[in-house]
Amino acid sequence: MGPVARLLAQRISLGLLLLFLVSILIFLGTMVLPGDVAQQILGQSATPEALANLRAELGVNDPPVARYFEWLGGLLTGDLGTALTSGQSINEAIGRRLSNTLFLAFWAALITVPLAIFLGLLAVRYQERWPDKLISATTLTTISMPEFVLGYILMFFVGVRLGWLPPTAVGFRPDGDLLSRLESIALPVMVLTLVVLAHMMRMTRAAILNVMQSAYIETAELKGLTTFTVIRRHAFPNAISPVINVVMLNLAYLVVGVVVVEIVFNYPGMGQYLVDHVTKRDVPVVQACGIIFAAIYIGLNLTADVVSILTNPRLRHPK
């Protein structure tokens, strides 16, 4: 096995181990309080029958370790259990909502990634001059805004006052045609783009600057190579891995953004499902959503690692 393959195998198995540990963490997270979970969910006024029913449904009569492995077994066989509040299968609800969320995240990513890299390059090209400063000031502003603030500002001015785009995503129909679906998610996508763009651009700028200031670039310039050759032969191969890393890390950041943005625009996705059921104290749904969000997040981080191993020129030529 070559060094690259070994590193990859190592990273992927570490990622799987991490996911396993996170499932324990999420399971423990719903047991932070000592005492009776059923009582906490139903409140003080619950009848003894209701409490007994809920306890049986949650399986709190079994020891926690047994419960955890039962839950984990369900996860591995693709069975997420049933929701306490509706009695319906969680798989079905999540299947529908996950594809909605991915649709939203996909379009946000499609717009953000090229834009961020382009603006990052622009900021490096005009470093310390007005384009760079303007970009820095704008990103400082959007970084300091929580997603919902930006969401409501856009909803109010672009959606309601100007009436250019639908102010909420309630008109979203998963089976509608692409154009009408895109229209109803236009504002949420815009919010996600702005929120992630700032981080992604700042980090892209830093990553490229870091490469451009290294000694081998200076050597290449001193050798008398043209700017284009310096960029093609020396800067690009070394910059691609940090830039892809930045992109992946920020796509992972979309996971959090999506939760809030779905609530703001009333979009029927995973985030809304999660928050609704936290309010209803529907523990099985919360655990299922939690592990899925965590898996996506860890998966994106892992992809970042894998891509940076594959694109690292130093690793391709082992000593």
């Binding site: 999420i26 997270g29 936290v278 655990q287 939690g290």
Partner: peptide, 9 residues
């Protein structure tokens, strides 16, 4: 996400 999980109980 972790905060939401904990706040559910």
């Amino acid at each position: 996400i972790l905060a939401l999980v904990i706040l559910s109980v």
